[in-house]
Computed example of a mutant assay.
Amino acid sequence: MLKAKLKEWSKTNKGNWKQRKEDILSQISSWETIQEQRPLTDDELIQKTHSEEVAKQEEIAWKQRSRIQWLKKGDKNTKFFHRIATSHKRFNSMEELEVEGDITKDQIGIKEAAQEFYKNLYQETEGWRPDQRILDVSRITEEEQVWLQRPFGRRKFWEA
């Protein structure tokens, strides 16, 4: 009896899941359209992030449920996948960068400024290096070199 009720509940809620997913994806799409025209307010950004998280959680749940089929058939680049990828690309991009008080919006300028920053960050500022020549140090003989490079036996191994 319980099994029959669960099947009935599942059938009635499947349509609701599809509708909810479509609603969430359309919300994400509308936020992205608005974001192309103007920057989102803090509330809008929170709502967009929440919608993306809900969509991501739902996708993860389906992946976990159908892991065997997914592995057999491979990853399909669905509309959902492309929307999430586009959303991540927009979130991870720099629209402007402040360099020495000047704001740069040109993508080539941003790229060059970032390259220059890291180039200067990892460049040596000191012009001198310590001298590696050490005076008045005795060297080992060739016999000592051979002795140091000899293979060790099992007895020495077990003693150690």
Rank of each mutant, 00 (worst) to 15 (best):
K72Q: 15
E59C: 04
F81T: 13
E59N: 05
R65D: 14
H82G: 07
E59F: 01
P39C: 06
R38N: 03
A55M: 10
K72Y: 15
E59W: 02
K56C: 09
V54K: 05
I60W: 14
F81Y: 05
D43Y: 00
K76I: 01
W70T: 07
K48C: 14
T78Y: 07
Q57A: 10
Q57L: 13
N77D: 13
H82L: 09
Q69T: 00
H50K: 05
I46N: 13
T41S: 14
L45H: 10
H82Y: 06
L71Y: 08
W70G: 12
K79H: 02
L45M: 11
N77H: 08
H50F: 07
R83Q: 14
R38T: 01
H82F: 10
K76Y: 02
R67V: 01
W62T: 08
Q69I: 00
Q57S: 09
Q57R: 12
A55L: 13
K63C: 09
W62Y: 12
W70S: 13
R38E: 06
L40R: 00
G74E: 06
I68C: 14
S51I: 04
E53Q: 06
G74P: 07
P39E: 14
S51T: 06
W70N: 13
S66Y: 12
I60G: 13
D42K: 10
H82S: 10
V54W: 02
K76M: 05
T78F: 05
T78H: 07
E59K: 04
V54L: 11
F80K: 00
D42P: 00
D43S: 02
E52P: 05
L45P: 00
L40T: 00
K56S: 13
D42H: 06
W70C: 09
L40C: 04
T49K: 10
E44R: 03
A55G: 03
L40K: 05
Q37T: 15
K73R: 09
E58A: 15
Q37S: 14
E44P: 03
E58C: 15
K63S: 09
R67A: 07
K72I: 15
K79P: 00
L71F: 07
K63P: 02
T41R: 06
D75V: 07
S51E: 06
N77V: 05
K79Y: 03
L71A: 12
Q57I: 05
S66I: 08
F80H: 06
R65L: 15
T49R: 13
G74N: 07
L40Q: 04
I46G: 07
E53W: 02
E52D: 08
I46F: 10
W70V: 02
Q64G: 01
L40E: 07
I46L: 11
R38I: 00
R38F: 02
Q69A: 02
K79I: 00
K79F: 01
Q69N: 00
E59I: 03
